[in-house]
Design a binder for these strands. Structure first.
Lengths: 132, 132
DNA sequence: CGGGATCCTTATCGATACTG
DNA sequence: CAGTATCGATAAGGATCCCG
């Protein structure tokens, strides 16, 4: 076994570097602060703009609007306008969006279930830095 | 049925709004452009700094360094220094990191498997905007 | 090789004001 | 209600140089 740097994985199989580029692009597309959160919330059912905004709480209407536009463009949510006074616009997950919701929810649940472990790790890291 | 705004979900079960705040914080912590990507790659095994950088490709060393620092602080990766000339620093997932890797990988696989559907949705969205 | 420090350029975000 | 438009602050990100 060589101690060279490089990838040192089985030669001929340099991981799935091939899939790395498109995945990283997709990952980058959804890795903004709000997308995952909005998808996760809409997983609970359709919501109108301000209801959604209230549910998230900290988001500005600007960011919510642009996040929703991106999600609509990517085919994750539908935007249904009911022309009334006052107007009503409802956002809901599409089939694709509901599919996407599953891994998102898995991730969210994991972070929730393991937040204690992470906090512990952070505390340990802090003391480690202090003691040495 | 009232046309009021509000949440209009089954009263008494107003979703898991309780869990929304901590989850959104955790989600926000990992939702930067690189964290998920680095975790996913380190899932394939330990790597040294520049090997990791090469594998990601587009990242600057600054962002990689800071991303790795965050990951170490959160207890997802270990940083092992071997004092040689030239020095060697290897990054590897911890138990927590490997745990975390699973939902991340699920998300990555999903995006990869469904990239065609997303592209189709984007194309459909474009024509829809053009025709109307 | 593995970074830290610095500078500089963008992208992100929020607050405010305005429209249909 | 559901946004768009504009502006200013701030953070993210990249390029370069430098050091152990």
């Amino acid at each position: 076994m060589s101690q060279q740097e490089s990838t040192f994985r089985k030669p001929g199989n340099q991981r799935d570097t091939t899939a790395c580029e498109p995945i990283s692009r997709m990952l980058a597309r959804i890795s903004d602060k709000w997308t995952l959160l909005v998808v996760r919330i809409l997983g609970g059912g359709p919501l109108r703009f301000n209801a959604l905004k209230r549910e998230i709480g900290e988001i500005s209407q600007k960011m919510l609007a642009s996040t929703l536009r991106d999600l609509e463009e990517n085919g994750f949510v539908t935007r249904t306008v009911t022309p009334l006074t006052p107007p009503q616009v409802e956002y809901a997950l599409t089939d694709l969006g509901r599919d996407f919701w599953e891994p998102v929810q898995a991730l969210a649940k994991w972070t929730h279930a393991n937040s204690a472990r992470i906090d512990a790790a952070r505390a340990a890291y802090a003391t480690r830095r202090a003691t040495r």
